[in-house]
Structures are given as structure tokens and as C-alpha cells.
Amino acid sequence: MRTTLPKILCIGCGIIMLLQFFVPLEFVQRDMLQWVNDSAIVVATFGLAIGLASLVHVHSARIRRRARGWGFSVVTLACAVVVAVIGLLKSDWGPVVAHSQRYDILPNGVTAGVIEVTHTLFGYQTETAFTNTLAAAALVPLQQRTVPMFDWFYNYIMYPLMSTVFALLAFYMMTAAYRAMRAKSWEAGLLLAAALIVLLGQVPVDQFVRLPAIDGMSLFEWLKLRILDYPNTAAKRSIIIGVALGGLATSIKILTGIEKPYLGGRG
């Protein structure tokens, strides 16, 4: 039963997914597909929960064993907890950093109303007190702008960190270009020439250097497109077709129960 039920589920779901590409019946196209999709999204959502559980398990074990670099595991778990708590808290909550007042004056010189502004770490909230109804009509209150805490953390911590780590690649790539991209053989030279053409074709270098134009494009741009359109497309197509045939064979083996990767190869 431990192996039969997963096999039945896998083959059944696979056949349902297959049918809706080939059988134009409304029951297959709508109801069966809805059921599989709903189930898949629920499974994927539970996948996130399993991922979180796995993260906690792996890192708590590292902390218990005092494994090398266990301090990073503490930081990882602390960050996970802090972000989860922030996500669950009321979105506009935040420590008050300042109060301010703004008076609006009508064209006739009469004070029309007062706007109380409460600045929090995550934005500001406004409360408007009007002196009379006429003034209320004349006064345009500040647009309320409260930044959810989760967004604040994302914009000012997560975003800069991810961008910075990725930006470091530029420095490594530049040093690698100097050290590794060398024409050590005829084939390497050919590859290098193609890389140089694509690099030059990607930027408007013709604005600073006079270059011949072909089909309304600069020489390097024209050459770049020829490389992308012919040798690249030919190579990519053969890879895509090869991968597709391999995927088809594997799918047939899974659908017929010959291959069972979901059971770890057992059963």
C-alpha cells in the first residue's frame, strides 16, 4: 500500500494533465483540470511549510552540535522568526518617531483646519480636524501613506542585500575575463571572437566609433544578430529537441509506472 497508493496518485494525476491537452470535453477541460490545479496549489503551499520545517530542523541541529559556522545558523533562524512575526503583525504598526501639525490657510486668510501627522518608523498617518464644514470642503487632506512593516523590511534590508550580493558578480566577472578568457586553442579563440562581437553588439558603440552600417544596424549589432539567429538557434534547437525527447521518454516511463522517482527509485 505504501508504494501502490503513490503510484496510483502519480499515474492518475499525470493522465488527467495529459488528457486536458488533447480531449476538448468541458468536463476534462474545466472540472478535472480545476481539481488537479487546486490540489497542486495546495501541495505547493504545503511545500513551503515543509521547506520552513526543514530550515528549522537543519539549522537547529547545527546549533545543537556547535557545527562550524553555527553562528550563521542562529542568524538565519532569528531572521526567519523576525520576518514571520513582522508579517503577522498589524501592517501599520510602528514606533512613533515624531508628531507634527500642519495648518491650511484659505485664500481669505482664515485658518481652515489643522492636520495632525504622526510619523512612525514605517510611514505616517494623518488625522484632520476642520474648523468648519466650509473649510472641510476647501481643505485637501494629506493622502494617508502607511508603509507596511513587512514592505519596509523588504525595501530597506532584503532588497539592498540581494542586489549587493548579485552586484559583486560584476567584479568577479571582470577579473575572470582578464584571467580566464584566453585564446589557448583555435576553438577557444573562436568562442572568444563570438563573445567579443556579442558584447560589442549589445551596446551602442557606433556612437563613439565610426563603423560601417548593414541593414540599418551597426556592424557589431548586425553580426551579433547573425550569431544569435543562426549558429545559436541551430544549437539551441537541437538541445531543446533532445531535452524534449528525453522528457517525453521519462514521462512515458513514469506514467506507465516503470520509473518511480517519487519513491526514491524504490517500489
Binding site: 575575463a177 572568444l192 563573445a195 560589442l200
Partner: peptide, 15 residues
């Protein structure tokens, strides 16, 4: 553009 030119110069220098 500046970065691409730099990378080309570095490749040429390395070679």
C-alpha cells in the same frame, strides 16, 4: 557601454 568596453580591454590585455 563603459563596462562592456572595460571587459573587452581586459580580455585583450589578458591575451
Amino acid at each position: 557601454l563603459a563596462s562592456h568596453v572595460l571587459i573587452i580591454v581586459l580580455i585583450a590585455l589578458g591575451n
